[in-house]
């Protein structure tokens, strides 16, 4: 029983990271119809910012998360406005190729700047945890889950309660009609990608506290974000939260099967994605549009 509870706790905590990685990816996919293959690379930029601030200035990694968000927002806005907007009406394959190219560019710039060494952020409290009976809850992971949920809530607030959120929902529903009410498409697209990138930056900061990062460490996260968004369902932040937590749970239980490792856990998670696609293509929480 204690093992079961421990697995649920670990799964939900791991799910926090997937939530953080998934919400930005899902926003960009749902609104811009871009499967952003550079998402993992954006995540890792956030990780390096947190690492740099921690190692050079001893800034607590949680305090550097807003810096990650702002920096990645600016980068994302600029990328969309300057580069991706040019092919936004092109077929999906073009955005695949472009974001794949961006992914390679970012990885190689990171290699130039930081080399390929493993970098990790280890604040004084990193090894500690809350012990509840036989169940251990690591502090950093617990806080990461909290930050991920807060980030998701903040994104949902922006999308549902602000003027730019209204514009983003409008372009997502009908691009031409949105233009006809006076929404500047280029700005709204860039804001969307910028918000997605900001979420990626926060995710990267969280990931840097949990694992050692290298310039290529983001690639699995692109794939996992894809699964998370499909699991939860495209188009709503809350659906991605459910998808992320579900993915974390599945992974935790997959890893607990005797003789299996993380590879097998991934196979189970992707198997679940295929199952969801076949039986419930709108995702666990999604609406058919």
């Amino acid at each position: 029983m204690a093992d079961f509870v421990q697995l649920v706790v670990l799964g939900l905590l791991a799910g926090g990271v997937y939530v953080a990685v998934g919400i930005g990816f899902g926003l960009v996919w749902g609104v811009l119809n871009i499967v952003n293959l550079a998402h993992g690379a954006l995540v890792i930029i956030g990780g390096y910012i947190t690492w740099q601030l921690f190692s050079a200035f001893h800034i607590d990694p949680f305090l550097s998360l807003p810096v990650d968000a702002v920096a990645l927002f600016v980068l994302g806005y600029t990328l969309q406005r300057g580069v991706i907007n040019r092919i936004i009406r092109a077929p999906l394959l073009f955005t695949f190729l472009l974001t794949f190219g961006l992914n390679l560019v970012i990885i190689n710039v990171l290699l130039l700047m930081f080399g390929s060494d493993f970098r990790s952020v280890t604040p004084s409290y990193s090894g500690q945890g809350l012990e509840l009976g036989n169940v251990v809850v690591p502090y950093t992971r617990l806080a990461s889950l909290g930050v991920a949920i807060l980030t998701a809530a903040a994104l949902a607030f922006v999308l549902n309660r602000t003027r730019i959120g209204l514009a983003i929902n409008a372009i997502s529903a009908d691009r031409d009609a949105a233009q006809l009410v006076g929404i500047d498409l280029r700005h709204a697209y860039a804001m969307t990608y910028g918000l997605g990138a900001a979420c990626a930056g926060v995710a990267g900061g969280l990931i840097a506290m949990i694992q050692a990062i290298t310039p290529t460490a983001g690639e699995p996260y692109t794939l996992q974000a894809f699964v998370v968004v499909i699991l939860g369902g495209l188009g709503r932040v809350s659906a991605t939260v459910v998808g992320g937590l579900a993915f974390g749970l599945v992974e935790a239980f997959g890893q607990s099967i005797p003789g299996s490792g993380s590879v097998f856990a991934n196979a189970i998670a992707f198997g679940l994605m295929v199952l969801v696609l076949v039986t419930r293509p709108q995702g666990l929480m999604g609406r058919l549009r």
Binding site: L166, N169, A170, A173, D174, D176, A177, V181, G182, R289
Partner: peptide, 17 residues
Amino acid sequence: RLFGTMSVEKNLLLGAY
């Protein structure tokens, strides 16, 4: 070309964006 899943009120207010 309405924003079909949004409320009538939101559609009208979007006109004043």
